[in-house]
């Protein structure tokens, strides 16, 4: 039996801008099961960001139902949504959103501060483990400005992992990185996915989407195409195939 992590049906989202109603999402149905690595694609204005906000429980749909790990999100209050985000979701952003002048370890610890059941000792241990999982155990006490873009994004990924979420939501997570570093980040996501993590990855780059298992294309608030990735590339192999960069 495959477990449905995300189950969205007839989802609509309208924004009222002045006197005009903008239909950001018209009627979206989408199921994402455990262990999937889904790329949500589309141009700007296609509705993919709105979709991600709703999936991330940061926004509520106008109509339709959204079940996250079997919980009907539409009935929850603001505070209950916050708790759900804390326990079930991990976010990775394009611009990392790390706290400045705060060590990598403390940045990763942050979500656990909002969970009362995690004691300080456990908080530290789990943060160290998460940093280990992204290969940054030797950079724990570095500040964000002492880390490269790729390393900062890894800290952010560690932060999204630390509460052991049911799904990681990544919003253009490679958007600020060069090709090689993008591949490294994708290789990390592929490793996490291989260990069973469910990942939803918003991107507009087909090349990046090629590393996922399924692509969902949005246009004008509708899903226009869904396809399984057949010849899925390995980001790790792509990096190895690239010419070695020579340090100057």
């Amino acid at each position: 039996m495959v477990r449905n992590i995300i189950s969205v049906s007839s989802l609509k989202k309208d924004f009222i801008v002045g006197e005009v109603t903008v239909h950001a999402l018209r009627s979206v149905n989408l199921n994402i099961t455990e262990g999937e690595f889904v790329a949500i694609m589309g141009t700007s204005g296609s509705g993919k960001s709105t979709m991600l906000n709703i999936l991330g429980c940061l926004d509520k749909p106008t109509e339709g139902t959204y079940l996250l790990d079997g919980i009907d999100v539409s009935t929850l209050s603001k505070n209950e949504l916050a708790r759900l985000r804390n326990l079930k979701l991990g976010f990775v952003f394009q611009s990392y959103n790390l706290l400045p002048r705060t060590s990598a370890l403390e940045n990763v610890e942050l979500p656990l501060f909002y969970n009362d059941s995690v004691k300080p000792r456990e908080r530290r241990e789990r943060a160290i483990a998460a940093l280990g999982a992204v290969g940054l155990e030797d950079r724990m006490h570095h500040m964000p400005n002492q880390l490269s873009g790729g390393q900062q994004q890894r800290v952010a990924i560690a932060r999204s992992l630390v509460n052991d979420p049911v799904v990681i939501l990544a919003d253009e997570a490679t958007g600020n990185l060069d090709t090689r570093t993008s591949y490294e980040i994708m290789a990390l996501f592929q490793e996490l996915n291989a260990k069973g993590k469910t990942i939803v990855f918003v991107t507009h780059e087909p090349e990046i989407a090629g590393f996922t298992t399924r692509n969902v294309h949005f246009r004008d608030g509708n899903i226009i195409k869904e396809n399984l990735v057949t010849n899925r590339g390995s980001a790790r192999e792509m990096i190895n195939a690239m010419p070695m960069e020579v340090d100057s």
């Binding site: 916050a82 985000r85 804390n86």
Partner: peptide
């Protein structure tokens, strides 16, 4: 502002 957004996205409530 972005720090506040981040804190909210990782589970901080308005009251927090």
């Amino acid at each position: 502002t972005r720090e506040i957004g981040l804190r909210m996205s990782i589970g901080g409530r308005g009251l927090d």
